[in-house]
Amino acid sequence: MSTLASARAVLSDAVDRDQLDDAFAQGTWRLINVIEAGPGHPAQLIFARDAHHHVHVVDDQQLGLTYLAAQGEDGQEAIAELSDSLPCYSSASARADLANATPPARARALGALVLLEPEAPDLESMIIEALRDPSVTLRVAGLTAAAYAPRPVFRDHVTALRDADPEPKLREAAERVIAALPQP
């Protein structure tokens, strides 16, 4: 599963659809497409300001997050502008949650970091730690994160889950993730 493009902002849980619509309307963005969730892709709304500027609102059920995504330098500007009028979940908050919060909040934080800092040097260790966590929620989050940021280094850890995790569904999921991971 590929991650979407360069600039992203993860929306706070408190953001509702009206706030989202208002923020786009304020920035003279028009709704140009509505994509229902389907096999292999999450539900998305696509807003455009003109033929070259698009922002996707992705409702990612696997990560349990809604985020904005846009491409290119202009995309960075667009995301920054929208983030000013929408409460967002920052990487700093995600890092803090990952260190201290409950397993569901840590799982959410890991998903956010995968989106916001996919190239962060410490992301690998965070994902590996999640894959080895006693909490099923965290292990699932680790698998999802490994699928979103696939690297050869995860292969052994995911294989271990496939072979020995007490949760049958998690073992099945691990099998699917292994297929998506690059060879060392």
Partner: peptide
Amino acid sequence: LGGVLLASARRGAYRRAS
């Protein structure tokens, strides 16, 4: 519903989904 929202937007009549 998604198509209704989109068609409304194409007519310039979309402000809020709600």
